[in-house]
Simulated assay, not measured.
Amino acid sequence: MYSIIREVDTEFRELAHDIDEARAAVAQAQAAEARVFARAAAVGARRVAALGSPSSREAELPLRALAAELGAAARMSDRTVQRHMNDAATLTEKFPATFNAWEQGRVSTGHVRTIMEHGLPLTDPDARALFETEALLRAEETTPGRLGASLARLAESLQPRTLTERHQEARASRGASVRDIGDGMAEFSTIQPAVLAHAMHDRLTQQAKTLKNADPTDTRTLDQIRADLVADMLLTTTPTVETGAGLSDGFGGLGAIRGI
Rank of each mutant, 00 (worst) to 15 (best):
32 A>S: 12
32 A>L: 11
32 A>Q: 04
34 A>E: 08
35 R>S: 12
35 R>I: 01
35 R>V: 01
36 V>E: 10
36 V>L: 11
37 F>T: 03
37 F>P: 09
38 A>E: 06
41 A>F: 00
45 A>T: 13
45 A>V: 04
46 R>K: 11
47 R>F: 02
48 V>R: 07
50 A>I: 04
52 G>P: 03
53 S>P: 04
53 S>F: 10
53 S>G: 14
58 E>W: 07
59 A>W: 02
60 E>T: 04
61 L>V: 15
71 G>H: 02
71 G>W: 02
72 A>K: 14
72 A>M: 11
75 R>T: 11
77 S>V: 04
82 Q>E: 15
85 M>E: 08
86 N>W: 09
86 N>G: 07
93 E>A: 14
93 E>T: 06
93 E>H: 03
95 F>T: 08
95 F>V: 13
96 P>T: 05
102 W>R: 09
106 R>N: 01
107 V>L: 10
108 S>M: 03
109 T>V: 07
110 G>W: 02
110 G>K: 03
110 G>E: 08
112 V>F: 00
117 E>C: 06
118 H>M: 12
118 H>E: 13
119 G>S: 10
122 L>F: 01
122 L>N: 00
124 D>G: 13
126 D>N: 04
127 A>G: 12
132 E>Q: 09
132 E>A: 08
133 T>V: 08
134 E>G: 09
134 E>M: 07
137 L>H: 05
140 E>H: 01
141 E>C: 08
142 T>Y: 03
143 T>W: 03
145 G>R: 04
